[in-house]
Design a protein around this nucleic acid. Structure first.
Ligand SMILES: [Mn+2]
Ligand SMILES: [Mn+2]
Ligand SMILES: [Zn+2]
Ligand SMILES: [Zn+2]
Lengths: 138, 138
DNA sequence: TTACATGTTTGCAATCATTACAAATTTATA
DNA sequence: TATAAATTTGTAATGATTGCAAACATGTAA
């Protein structure tokens, strides 16, 4: 909890209760949560929480570089605690999202067909290892 | 126009006027259009056109493999005529979207961390060659 | 040619994620 | 304590997309 407080402070965000709780939720490993998911998870503990606060807070966190927004998944923005660059894999069967160690050469800050590339986003789809195994055993 | 008709027939879609017009629009090179863009462009010629028809038609085309939907760009789905796999680059300055010859090894139908990859989607951001040149000359 | 079945298009209402905004509440500061 | 600043809330608005039933068009069998 102190660690989370420090993360906020280091990014010039005052550590209010709601912000801490939202950060705590999104700081767990492998979260790729929507605003709504976060809201639903936290409203049990904080019955007064408003969804607008969740949206506001996520926007603040993103602007200050604490979290990343993924627009990759149709219709809904998902958020994750910022960490080393990685690709995303989504299983077509179970819908689960996996982080994947970067399978490509690093392109950032290079040039391609005359364009200067600042950022790369890689999204993979298929059948995850769990679902593959279930099929095998069937 | 005959070519377009054949594309529809080959995909078991009867070539109604509206479908042909929508296909004609999206068949032009380098379109990455939203449903609304297509609607606005065509309503001049076809004043009776309804936006629902555009949505319906795009859905039909996608289901039958004529076009691809790109969910990459925040909030809005963009469509393009299906062609050889390629990456997308969006300029942060002017907003233009470019097709990029695939800069990565082909991953489809391979395995990664135990998952079976069917599809890859690559999205790059940065400053496009046009905007770079403008900056140079300034 | 008529009558019915089928396919296509329309128009409008509903949904869902997100944002705008102003009021209420909390916290910090003089 | 009084006042200013920051945070949070609740509700209304927006924008993309879908659901749905009615209207329209087309094809086909009698
Ligand atoms: Mn991730
Ligand atoms: Mn393209
Ligand atoms: Zn799975
Ligand atoms: Zn540009």
């Amino acid at each position: 909890m102190e660690e989370l407080k420090n993360i906020l402070k280091m990014h010039n965000i005052s550590p209010s209760l709601h912000r801490l709780k939202i950060l705590e939720y999104i700081h767990r490993p492998y979260t790729h949560s929507t605003a709504d998911e976060i809201f639903q998870a936290l409203e049990k503990d904080i019955p007064t929480l408003s969804k607008t606060t969740v949206y506001n807070t996520l926007k603040t966190f993103e602007k200050n570089g604490i979290i990343s927004a993924l627009s990759i998944f149709e219709n809904e923005t998902r958020y994750e605690f910022k960490k080393q660059e990685h690709a995303h894999f989504k299983c077509e069967k179970c819908g689960e999202i996996f982080d994947i160690a970067h399978p490509f050469d690093f392109l950032k800050e290079t040039e391609l067909e005359g364009h200067f590339i600042k950022n790369q986003l890689i999204y993979l789809k298929g059948i995850c290892r769990n679902c593959l195994q279930k099929t095998e055993n069937a």
